[in-house]
Design a protein around this nucleic acid. Structure first.
Lengths: 103, 103
DNA sequence: AGCATACATTGACAACCATCGATTTGAGAA
DNA sequence: TTCTCAAATCGATGGTTGTCAATGTATGCT
């Protein structure tokens, strides 16, 4: 019925690791704070966004933002780079793929 | 840095309703069981999938699967149709958009 | 060395969630 | 109407999560 054929390209059989990983990535995006953070990274004009610039808008504690960034990194949606005292984050390929519709 | 320009097309400023809605949809996809269910619906060769055909593969209680389907419906990713005693589900446009990369 | 800054980690807690068994609702069949 | 079956709803429960304050770690500056 749908214009695409799922099974051949997906390789997402139940209980597959890819399914679990993809679910983890969606889950990471499934929080308004994290979604806002990653979209902010995506909209950053630089090659990466500093966490110190992302934190103020959230009105959350520094530790909370740090936690959310870690969730996004662990899900494979962001990569972290240390620059001196600052931590910078950039989108991974997975993230650009998942968010492609909105970018 | 990225090949797309986010802000003009997104309209997803912090605390916007669209951001919350999108997060809700990602959250609904962020559970392996639900992701498996919706992908099964997507791969169904009919115009809609009956919940009675989806349940056995999950190894979950009937009430649990029913709950997950409701979450997907409430998120706007599935639409429910009653056919006699059976409940059928089909993807919404939002779902095809979000899952487009994997279909 | 000593200090300040930027961020991560820890521990705690309330809210939320996935799951189940039991019950109820609703739709066809007898 | 009564029975049966499919599915939704309810109530309970153990596990997970978002959040914070406090503390730890590492980097740069003086």
């Amino acid at each position: 019925m749908y214009a695409f054929d799922v099974s051949p390209r997906l390789l997402l059989r139940p209980s597959s690791k890819k399914l679990a990983r993809l679910a983890e990535q969606y889950k990471a995006l499934g929080d308004p704070t994290r979604l806002g953070l990653i979209l902010k990274v995506a909209s950053c004009s630089e090659d990466a966004a500093c966490i110190c610039e992302l934190t103020p808008d959230t009105n959350l504690a520094q530790s909370t933002v740090s936690h959310h960034m870690k969730v996004l990194v662990d899900a494979g949606l962001l990569i972290r780079t240390q620059r001196g005292k600052w931590a910078f984050f950039a989108l991974t390929e997975d993230a650009t793929t998942l968010l492609h519709n909105f970018l």
